[in-house]
């Protein structure tokens, strides 16, 4: 009976750990998606910056805000884009840090899950190899 309860305990433990692991993996996936979005935006902004740099001083630049095109000063637009790039870079760095953190967590969780599943396996093996009278959970 004791072994049966221990077995159940182990199983529950393993389940929670596995859930944690899958949660972390989901987080990592989300992180990757956000990262991807930001990298695309970064590339776009860099392109914009390049084009803005190539424009003449007197060129008309508009920014689409909602449904309207708002005329902007070229210098202002340039500054805005630069700021945006800075922001995105910072964000990417931050995402990198969290991703690393998550990955560390993931690997440690993976290890524990591995060990736990091994334990469970051994446990079940021992349990099953015991005489039949010991059954009954």
């Amino acid at each position: 009976m004791g072994s049966a309860s221990a077995l159940k305990e182990l199983q529950r433990d393993l389940e929670t750990k596995a859930n944690d692991l899958s949660k972390i993996q989901k987080d990592i996936a989300k992180n990757h998606q956000v990262r991807k979005k930001y990298t695309i935006q970064l590339g776009e902004n860099e392109l914009v910056l390049k084009e803005l740099d190539l424009l003449q001083e007197d060129a008309n630049v508009y920014k689409l805000i909602g449904p309207v095109l708002v005329k902007q000063d070229l210098a202002e637009a340039n500054a805005n884009v630069r700021k945006r790039i800075e922001y995105i870079s910072a964000e990417l760095k931050r995402l990198d840090a969290t991703l690393q953190d998550l990955e560390e967590k993931q690997s440690s969780k993976k290890e524990t899950v591995c060990i736990l599943s091994l334990f469970l396996y051994i446990y079940i093996y021992i349990y099953l190899s015991q005489p039949r009278s010991d059954y009954g959970i």
Binding site: Q41, E44, N45, L47, E51, N60, V61, K63, L69
Partner: peptide, 11 residues
């Protein structure tokens, strides 16, 4: 009016 990206247009 060329879209440069990220909502910026230039004439």
């Amino acid at each position: 009016l060329v879209l440069l990206g990220d909502g910026y247009y230039a004439e």
